[in-house]
Every structure is written in C-alpha cells, then in structure tokens.
Design a protein around this nucleic acid. Structure first.
Length: 326
DNA sequence: AAGTTACACAACCGCGGACGC
DNA sequence: AGCGTCCGCGGTTGTGTAACT
C-alpha cells in the first residue's frame, strides 16, 4: 500500500491554478476524458501532479458543478445526512447533485457546525451537549448552596447565576424541541408525508416561543426570577437558522430523505438520532416520540405531551414559561 | 486611510482501500 | 500472498476579501 509520490518532486507546480492551466485541463478532459490522472498532466501539457489535476477538475472545473449559496433544502439535507453518516462528505455529496464533497465540507465547517454549536448541540453527534448540562447542574447547585449556607435569600451574584442557569435551561429545552420538530419536518416522506396540523402547530408554537425568547438581543439583560436583570455570559449568541424550522420536503429532497432511512417517532434504531448505521448510543434524555411520532403535539396534549428530561430540576418548571411545556 | 480580524473557499497533505501484476 | 501503484477521502492549511476598529 504505497503512497503516491506527489507534487513536491520534479518541481511540479503547486498553488492556485491559472486560467491558462484551467483551460488546458478542461480542453484535455473534454476531448479525451481524464483516464489516468497520473498520466494526464504530461499529456495535457500541465506542470502539475495528477492529484492536483483531479482535485481541480472534480472540485472546480467539472461542468455539472452547481455554484453559489446552499439552499435551505440543501442545508437540511446536509444536516440530516451528517447526523447519520458523520463526516462522510463524499457520501453526503452523492445526495446533492452538483455539489462537491469539498464544498459541502467547507460549508459544514464554516456554517453548519458553528450553528449547531451555538444552538447547544454537539456537531458530531447532533445531540444536546452533555457538558452543557453538567455545567448547568453545577451552577444550580452552587446557587442553592449559597442560599443554604447563608441562610438568607440569594445575594445578587447567586441570584444571577440561578437566573442564568434557568434561562439557559429554557433555551436548551426549546432547542431540543425545535430540533425534534425540524427532524420531523426533514424526515422521509413515506410515512410522514403529511405534516399534520398539530405538527405545524407545534413548530409554530416553538417558533414563536423561540422568537419571543430570542427577541432579547444577547447579551441584553435577562429577567431572572426576582425580576432582576442580568448579563448572560453563559448563553451563546443564538442564531436560529430558518432551515432548522422549515419543512423542506419537496421532490428534490425526497430521494435523500428516503435514502437516509429516517423513521421518526421514537428512539428506536430508525430515528434520526439512532440510525441503524449510526454508532450513536440511544438517546435517553429527550423523548422525541412524544413530540413528533405519536398523535400528540406540544400544543395538543397538554402535560402528557412532553416529558422533560428527568435531570431537569423542578425549580426550572416553576417558571410560568416553562410551565407551558412541562 | 491603514491595520487588524473574521470569513469563505480553494488547494494541499497524508492515509488507506482497491486493484493489477 | 506480497508488493507497488493509483485513486478517493477527510483533515488541514493557505490565500483572497470583506468587515471592523
């Protein structure tokens, strides 16, 4: 299993391609096909290694390459496929005609990955970040400890910590719901082709709640339980992509969705969080099924519709806002 | 206006699988 | 079966440009 000698030897050119080089490569490939990439540069009169030529052709010069911004549908497909396939860029690219693996990889690294992180999701697992919950628990414990030790009401600092923790928890919970709803919208159409009114209602509710919460520009002071305000260094600057809440099902995405084998409704191996091809362990902290898979939705089933993760402190649901969901 | 930082994307690097001899 | 070559993939770096100070 040898390694192919590359450009460093024989003084072959590296770096950006010139229009003349592009022209030579395009003309040669269009006339003869690429054949052996190793032999191509010599035949085409290029002072490049075959690898460089192949890369230039597949990532830039190929005539069927679609350039320009990724559409919300494409974003959703990438998110969905990445949740199942991981960093298999070529596999993901095969479901996006005209897009190259390199382009998708770049788009992921510069946009989608950051977006997931901002929303509190692990970009590799597409699941809520557990370290976030750990930190949250510690914050809450600290705040409560301060109250116990002092035997007096929370001081400003502790109150602020508690308020921040609660606010962050609210956001995190909403994000989980939103992600679940988005997954419902992006799943295959075989058995979810009809988006029910309840589902739409759920998304609408989530959207509005998110909007109201996020209408407070970070790091704008947030209201805590005592009606005080505080800066919130814990909360990331949230940027909720519209595609996360869209229902991007259309004729173009059907194929990809079907191929991913999404099967919402529970944490079974068919769920987007637990694909049969995915190495992910089953989710235990979010009951997706109650949200999107069954006959219930957040707005139609009342208290029985959603079971918040058990690790959530009761205090969080004392907040009237959270009471809407608990 | 100049310098700095952030961002987007093209290109390179190195590894490993597939294949032929 | 072992070895060498080629190709494809994923990670990383480099470069140009826009935005900001």
């Amino acid at each position: 299993m040898g390694r192919s000698p590359c450009c460093d030897e024989n003084g072959l050119k590296k770096g950006p391609w010139t229009p003349e080089e592009d022209q030579k490569l395009v003309q040669y490939v269009q006339k003869h096909g690429h054949g052996s990439w190793r032999a191509l540069p010599k035949l085409a009169g290029l002072n490049r290694c075959g690898k460089s030529c192949r890369l230039r052709w597949t990532n830039y010069l190929r005539p069927d390459i679609k350039r320009g911004r990724f559409s919300p549908e494409e974003e959703q497909i990438i998110l969905n496929l990445h949740s199942v396939l991981g960093n298999k860029w070529s596999a993901i690219a095969s479901h996006l005609p005209g897009r190259t693996d390199n382009e998708i990889k770049n788009f992921w690294n510069t946009h989608l990955k950051k977006r997931l992180i901002q929303m509190g999701f692990d970009p590799m697992t597409h699941r809520p970040r557990t370290d976030f919950f750990d930190a949250l628990q510690q914050l809450i414990a600290l705040a409560k400890l301060g109250e116990l030790i002092g035997g007096r009401p929370l001081d400003d600092h502790a109150a602020r910590l508690q308020a921040e923790a609660a606010q962050a928890a609210q956001l995190q919970y909403l994000q989980q719901l939103a992600a679940a709803a988005a997954m419902a919208g992006s799943s295959g159409t075989d058995h979810l082709s009809t988006i029910t009114g309840a589902d739409l209602e759920t998304n609408s509710l989530l959207d509005s709640q998110m909007s109201s919460l996020l209408s407070i520009p970070s790091p704008t002071p947030l209201q805590d339980f005592n009606g005080q305000t505080s800066d919130n260094p814990l909360l990331p600057e949230l940027e909720i992509p519209c595609s996360m809440f869209d229902q991007p099902i259309n004729s173009e995405t059907n194929q990809s969705s079907n191929l991913t084998g999404f099967n919402l409704g529970d944490n079974s191996p068919g769920s987007p969080f637990m694909s049969p091809n995915s190495p992910l362990p089953p989710l235990t902290d979010v009951s997706i099924g109650n949200l999107v898979g069954g006959a219930c939705s957040a707005s139609s089933c009342g208290n029985s519709g959603i079971n918040p993760p058990s690790l959530w402190p009761d205090m969080l649901f004392d907040d009237p806002f959270m009471g809407d969901f608990a």
